[in-house]
Nucleic acid binder design. Sequence first.
DNA 1: TGATGTGAATGAGTTCACAGCC
DNA 2: GGCTGTGAACTCATTCACATCA
Lengths: 281, 281
Amino acid sequence: MATGRTHRPATRSRGIPEATVARLPLYLRALTGLSERSVPTVSSEELAAAAGVNSAKLRKDFSYLGSYGTRGVGYDVEYLVYQISRELGLTQDWPVVIVGIGNLGAALANYGGFASRGFRVAALIDADPAMAGKPVAGIPVRHSDQLEDIIRDNGVSIGVIATPAGAAQQVCDRLVAAGVTSILNFAPTVLTVPDGVDVRKVDLSIELQILAFHEQRKAGEDAPDVPPPPPTTVAQDGAEHPGTPATAPAAPEGGAPGDGAAPARRGRKGPDDELPAVMPA
Amino acid sequence: MATGRTHRPATRSRGIPEATVARLPLYLRALTGLSERSVPTVSSEELAAAAGVNSAKLRKDFSYLGSYGTRGVGYDVEYLVYQISRELGLTQDWPVVIVGIGNLGAALANYGGFASRGFRVAALIDADPAMAGKPVAGIPVRHSDQLEDIIRDNGVSIGVIATPAGAAQQVCDRLVAAGVTSILNFAPTVLTVPDGVDVRKVDLSIELQILAFHEQRKAGEDAPDVPPPPPTTVAQDGAEHPGTPATAPAAPEGGAPGDGAAPARRGRKGPDDELPAVMPA
DNA sequence: TGATGTGAATGAGTTCACAGCC
DNA sequence: GGCTGTGAACTCATTCACATCA
């Protein structure tokens, strides 16, 4: 362990940091806006502001792509648009399939951002036979029996999973077996994939929870250690006291920081804790 | 600039790294699953596997919360669930509003993950008068005129923006003015907010573009420097050769790496480049 | 002169590896 | 013996500050 990792330490060029890659689409969007307004050149300062990053970061990011700017002047908008598009692989056409056509899947199918910028919805797939044939966003939904055929016939290498959590791994396995090597996962599950397959995750409830964390901080501010009380109004809901905290999982005693006697959070809120995304697929 | 930033370097406890915070919801989900299966304790190894991280990272993450494990044994599931929930602020009730009830907004409203874990959809808001009163996910949509009242009446501090890009900043401003201090933004725009307001962004097209980048790499593998040719099939689309690259934005000449004569990407693909999310709000 | 491009400094996050405790 | 908790090493990312060049 820790020996191999061919990570291309080589000459130069190849090996753009992941953090930079993640920002390229942001720059691209900002540049596209400028391009539409026929702005010929931008400085790192201006473009950084439009993309919501700081200019030093932007310049360093661009330096990984090459020397595409002109000192004393800035960057040529059209040229940069092309270079970034090419770097991201958007100068070619990527057929994608969306699996799981519930609310979310339909939203994705209708999403303008899919159609533009090199992505093309090759098929919508759902496990519900009743959905089959029904057009969503102008594309007829196909039954998941045909998943493998669709992937192969269209040379699809990118798949989007918008199924409930329970179906996600299974769908993922089938996609991968059929040749998909990049997956965008909206289901709230950890997907297991073989090496060589990329998975990116978009998880609505996780994002909300992160916000809640920071929100709590704001409300609690200088409360030194105890869990701050409800910051916003609304908290009581009628039956809020669950059973006696008898089930309280014995804390490892020895002065654990920040709390006394955990109420064990008994009284399981709802049965749908696994956050089923939207519809069966 | 760069002086202030009280960032709590203090004694201990407060100051959980952002990266750790972002993983807590993941651990929580894995733990919830174990809890439902009545598993009493887990080792860092097992839990890490379930959450898709490595065990050292998990242990370090937990160490920021306190010493909640037992050496030689592992972690008490129920106890950890409570501690993480508390740390994330999920032991209280967070009313949220969703603005922009198009496909995506509806998907979010129906999303199980919202209802569980401390979040409660206080209202759905849309700018389309025709939507007003129509129930979505059992909640009547309200017109955006009432946005401020809704925020204040319900003590909402978290808002979700699912409007088209064009409306997002405006909606954001109104949310913030009305007292919202955390925003989850699904619109493909950079939002500008005052200090003290948190914004998290979920951007479908950016995620896809990042996948495309890696996908391209896989296909190109050992092509040393030139942009690899289309990996998947499907590439020609009829009229693919745009006008002469006359408009080609003069590259800064001097041997720029990796490409010759950028085709300037003339012939703008489609007019909907700004990726309007779904529906007016 | 006014911007880029980039080494060097700093900081954040991850991983290692092992002491400490059950 | 087994597993947590954590200093220390390391890797990755951001920021600074300035040499460099149109």
